[in-house]
C-alpha cells in the first residue's frame, strides 16, 4: 500500500491520540490483569497500585480495576513483575508476532 494519496508534502497531522505514532504496535507481549486476584479490585479499595507506579509508559490507570491504554503499552512486563500477587499475566501479542 503506497502513500501517493496522501497530499501532504511535509509531515502534517491533526493533534490526537496516537499521532506521534501508535507505539503500542511495537508490543509482542500483552499484559492481562486478573481482577479476581488484583488486591485493589478484590478489596474494592484504592490500594497497592504498584503496577501504576512502576509502569514506565504511564499507561496503567490508578483505577479499580486497573486498566491499560493499549495504544501505548509496549508489553514490557514490568507491571507483571512488580505485582505482589501475580495478578498480571503476559500473553503473546499474536497480531504483532510474525
Amino acid at each position: 500500500m503506497g502513500t501517493r494519496d496522501c497530499n501532504h508534502i511535509c509531515d502534517e497531522s491533526s493533534p490526537g491520540i496516537g499521532e506521534a505514532g501508535r507505539t503500542g504496535e511495537w508490543r509482542t507481549s500483552l499484559p492481562v490483569v486478573d481482577d479476581t486476584k488484583c488486591t485493589a479490585s478484590r478489596l474494592n479499595k484504592p490500594t497497592c497500585f504498584l503496577c501504576w507506579l512502576y509502569c514506565p509508559e504511564a499507561v496503567m490507570t490508578k483505577a479499580i480495576p486497573p486498566t491499560i491504554d493499549m495504544e501505548y503499552c509496549k508489553g514490557c512486563g514490568i507491571c507483571a513483575q512488580v505485582c505482589p500477587v501475580q495478578a498480571i499475566t503476559m500473553l503473546p501479542e499474536e497480531k504483532n508476532i510474525g
Binding site: 500500500m1 502513500t3 494519496d5 496522501c6 501532504h8 508534502i9 511535509c10 509531515d11 502534517e12 497531522s13 491533526s14 493533534p15 490526537g16 491520540i17 496516537g18 499521532e19 506521534a20 505514532g21 501508535r22
Partner: peptide, 27 residues
C-alpha cells in the same frame, strides 16, 4: 489545529482520521 513535522516513524502510519500518512522516507 495541526501538527507539523513532529516525530515521524520510519514507516507510513495511519493518522487519527484513519488515513495513511507518509513516513520519513516518503517525505
Amino acid at each position: 489545529p495541526k501538527n507539523y513535522n513532529l516525530v515521524t516513524l520510519a514507516n507510513p502510519r495511519i493518522g487519527v482520521d484513519g488515513k495513511l500518512y507518509h513516513g520519513y522516507m516518503e517525505l
